[in-house]
Design a protein around this nucleic acid. Structure first.
Length: 864
RNA sequence: GGAGACUUAGUUCAGCGGGAGAACGCUUCCUUCACACGGAAGAGGUCGUAGGUUCGAUCCCUACAGUGUCCACCA
């Protein structure tokens, strides 16, 4: 027997462990069709946040749904080593322990990092368990494990040999806090306040000067020339002359290049090839020197004279002061301009010339773009507008800087000859390793993540897993990592395997706080899923997360809505409790047979069928909000409010046959509700399922409900709806007239056709009144309610004037409706252009309205 | 500078070429034997503004306004 109140703590206890131990999460039944998903591996940097919960719940719903539909589902779990982020956290921990991190060795650090990984991996496992995720742990991987390292090396060597990976000196984004290079996507551009400074660059051998503008005066130590547009007439006379750099007195040539915009600033641009990507291009074009002026921590280096060792921003201020003293300062303007910050450290990123490893993107991007044009092979985005985001990024993808000056990651398999400097890229260290030194840099974390869908399945070996589950069926992730991850998986898979990594990508948004703000550590507005689970249960949280937004759209976390989800589950719980109590302990399940079912039974079964159809259709579209809404309406309106209440009549009758039919229908509805809600809320579904009179060992072994045409007979459904309307109007009458809900009224009913068996009994029971049947044309005093198939009169002490007033109101409303219909039908454009069915429907409506109007008019005549 | 998203009830959000929906909140009534974390009934919206397409627009198109998002090297 179920408890009176749904208690999530009791319901969610021990179930996960049991599922796991029984092997329900394990894939590999080759008698079934395969279906596969790889989890987006969470970083081992911390605990999971509510965004992870959303992401993984969507996957879990898909997984459980597909399992029920008879697929052999592989949901592959795993985690990401998250290079920069984890290294930063581990370093911080070591500093907090009082260690001198500058003295620590690579090997020592890696030991600490691995133990950090173990600790956080166990937190993540615990959270997955609490959320109830049906992950196949026998296939779990880590982005830094040996097998994945083998895959990473294979890809690196292959791309290198194809010329798609190269080492080059280029301008990269330098994070001076983490002291590593970053890729473009790891740089966040934000609008910062700053100044545009204008300085005089005196012309050598002249009293004149050029005014040059810059936002980063400290880079002036790296200036090698001043560039003007050859067409700029203001500067023609200076062509071939030199200017003096006001920062250090160096003489700089004036160079002409079309790149300079005559309209922008002063039209004279300082050129710092080592610290600006555009200047770098000009530097290359004219073979200019490229002096680097920063140390790795963005302090000024020895090229900066008296400023050596200063922080770049301190230097900036000091330099400006000195230029002012020299009289070369013109002005400064406050501006707001985009400034690049490191995604991880938030430090202002310094563009810096540096030797790094790159992936040549153009050929790979073109391949990915070409594949999107192939109908059967493309990756389908859900919702499809996100394909555009992907395509646009691919169209202008620049080379990807993949080397990082870190320890925590896949070490680049390149070897430098200690004597000759020769570079070799190899799967394994050279035989004479004593003469070689391995590249100390590691790869960008996303390099290994990009291989995740196939590296986790044993690639490059032709494993059975790869054969069976790759390409995967669907990937679920947030729109914020389309660039970081989705696009890179796509081009890597196409290059390495010749096929897409997944057929579909389901994109969701961000969870925001109650006020619509992004959740962040600095705001402290994050929501801890573990706390929500403790308060309301994993089921309520899962239901809330997956049913409160449209695909691809952000959502707000609102506590009351989780509570509402919990109330819904309590509703299902109690309806189950009731149904089970009706069935009794020794109930034997029997087949539903259409001929023993009442009109009411058939009605609810039809509603159930329709619900199954709608839910399934929307589940297949990954529209979990729409799917759950259909079920919700069925549970509340059709099943609980109508059928459960109505069924009490049959259950209290002496008719054993109809009693049994009702019980069977109740059970069928309940069981289907449990099965339909199960992917969303597996814990409560399992609990209720196992309380059914007959059940398998677990709901995880059940099959998903199917639309059942056999029981479909809706011929009397409209009469059932009429009954509901009659009851509703009677209730309404009582409330309007301040009568008790169970007050007995004097009701008269004229039926225009024969109603289903028991119709009157239901009406009597739910109106708490006796119902007199009228013959045609028989007149009764009272308030009239006209329906298409019936007329209801409620005798009352209300006076004539009031009755007439009400009647007039009804007549007026009906007249308006008739007018609306007539206007439409009299419009030849409507009748000729609108679909036939639409026109017929309007005609039908008009006829009914007119008929009903006649009744009301006659009624009025008799009263008046 | 580009791209796309959003604007619907007090609030958070669905929806849709043919009489506006849910949840929460609010009002009235009801402890009736599944559930007061409940039930019954109800109030509440010129669907951002202006044009256009259409027999018909909240829905499609255009412009505008507002809100937030992503991308982008202009000194």
């Amino acid at each position: 027997m179920l408890d009176k109140r749904y208690d999530h703590l009791q319901v969610e206890k021990d179930k996960y462990q049991n599922w796991k131990e029984k092997g329900y999460f394990t894939s590999g039944d080759i008698s079934k069709k395969p279906f596969s998903i790889v989890i987006p591996p969470p970083n081992v940097t911390g605990k999971l946040h509510i965004g992870h919960t959303w992401d993984t719940t969507i996957q879990d719903i898909i997984v459980r749904y597909k399992k029920m539909q008879g697929y052999d589902v592989l949901w592959l779990p795993g985690m990401d080593h998250a290079g920069i982020a984890t290294q930063a956290k581990v370093m911080e921990k070591l500093r907090n322990m009082g260690k001198d991190v500058t003295k620590i060795t690579r090997e020592e650090f890696l030991q600490w990092a691995w133990s950090w990984k173990d600790e956080y991996a166990s937190h993540i496992h615990e959270q997955w368990a609490q959320m109830g995720l049906a992950l196949d742990y026998t296939k779990e991987r880590f982005t830094l494990d040996e097998g994945l390292n083998y895959a990473v090396r294979t890809v690196f060597v292959t791309l290198y040999n194809k010329g798609l990976i190269y080492q080059g000196e280029r301008i990269i984004n330098w994070d001076p806090v983490q002291m590593t290079a970053l890729s473009n996507v790891e740089v966040i551009h934000q609008e910062d306040k700053g100044y545009m400074y204008y300085f005089k660059y005196p012309i050598v051998g002249s009293d004149e000067y050029l005014t040059v503008a810059t936002t980063r005066p400290e880079t002036m130590f790296g200036d090698v020339c001043v560039v003007v547009n050859p067409k700029d007439k203001r500067y023609t006379k200076y062509h071939g002359m030199k200017v003096i750099n006001p920062a250090n007195g160096d003489e700089l040539p004036i160079i002409c290049d079309e790149y300079v915009d005559i309209e922008f600033g002063t039209g004279a641009m300082k050129c710092t090839p080592a610290h600006d990507p555009n200047d770098f291009i000009i530097g290359q074009k004219y073979g200019l020197e490229m002096p680097i002026i920063f140390n790795k921590d963005a302090t000024m280096n020895e090229k900066c004279g008296q400023y050596k060792g200063m922080d770049r921003f301190v230097c900036r201020e000091a330099l400006i002061e000195n230029i002012k003293k020299d009289g070369n300062f013109v002005k400064q303007e406050e501006i707001v301009h985009p400034v690049g910050h490191s995604e991880r450290s938030n430090a202002v990123v310094e563009p810096m010339l540096s030797k790094q490893w790159f992936i040549k993107m153009r050929p790979l991007a073109d391949q990915a773009l070409a594949n999107q044009k192939k109908k059967g092979d493309k990756v389908s985005f859900v919702p499809d507008r996100f394909e555009k985001v992907f395509i646009q990024w691919m169209e202008k993808a620049e080379d990807w800087c993949i080397s990082r000056q870190l320890w925590w990651g896949h070490r680049i398999p390149a070897y430098y000859n200690k004597h000759t400097g020769e570079v070799k890229v190899l799967m394994d260290p050279p035989q004479d390793m004593e003469n070689w030194e391995q590249e100390s840099d590691v790869l960008d974390t996303w390099f290994s993540s990009a291989l995740w869908p196939f590296s986790t399945m044993g690639w490059p070996n032709k494993t059975p897993e790869l054969e069976r589950y790759f390409p995967t069926d669907v990937l679920v992730t947030g729109y914020d990592i389309i660039f970081f991850w989705v696009s890179r998986m796509i081009f890597q898979s196409l290059e390495m395997n010749g096929v897409r990594p997944f057929k579909e990508v389901v994109i969701h948004g961000l969870v925001r706080d109650e006020l619509g703000r992004k959740m962040s550590k600095t705001l402290g507005n994050g929501v801890d899923p573990i706390k929500v689970i403790a308060d309301y249960g994993a089921d309520a949280l899962r239901y809330f997360l997956t049913t409160n937004s449209t695909p691809g759209q952000d959502m707000r976390y609102i506590d009351e809505k989780v509570q509402a989800a919990s109330n819904y589950l309590n509703k299902i719980w109690n309806s189950a409790r009731y149904v089970l109590s009706i069935l009794g302990d020794d109930y034997k399940e029997s087949e539903l047979s259409s001929d023993k079912m009442s009109a009411l039974d058939k009605w609810i079964i039809n509603r159930l069928n329709t619900t199954i159809k709608n839910v399934t259709m929307n589940m297949d579209k990954y529209d979990f909000n729409a799917a759950s809404n259909h079920l919700y309406n069925f549970v509340y309106d059709d099943f609980c409010s109508q059928y459960l209440e109505m069924s009490k009549v049959a259950l209290n009758s002496d008719n054993e046959e109809s009693k049994n039919a009702t019980k069977a229908v109740l059970l069928k509805c309940l069981k289907n509700i449990i099965l339909l809600i199960y992917p969303y809320t597996p814990f409560i579904a399992e609990e209720l399922y196992c309380s059914l009179p007959t059940h398998l060992e677990s709901i995880m072994l059940e099959t998903y409900p199917k639309y059942d045409k056999k029981l479909f007979d809706d011929s009397k459904d409209y009469q059932v709806e009429l009954l509901f309307n009659l009851i509703k109007d009677v209730r309404n009458y009582k409330i309007e007239n301040k009568l008790a809900p169970n007050a007995s009224l004097d009701l008269s009913l004229l039926l225009k056709e024969e109603m289903f068996e028991g119709f009157l009994a239901y009406l009597k029971r739910f109106s708490f009144s006796d119902v007199k049947l009228l013959n045609k044309d028989q007149h009764v005093e009272g308030e009239s309610h006209i329906y298409n198939e019936a007329e209801l009169y409620i005798a009352s002490g209300v006076d004539k004037a009031e009755l007439l007033a009400k009647l007039d109101k009804d007549i007026e409303a009906l007249n308006n409706e008739i007018k609306r219909c007539e206007n439409m039908l009299n419009n030849p454009n409507f009748t000729s252009k609108a679909p036939e069915a639409k026109v017929a429907l309007e005609r039908e409506k008009l006829a009914k309205h007119q008929e009903n109007l006649q009744v009301l008019l006659e009624k009025r005549k008799k009263i008046a």
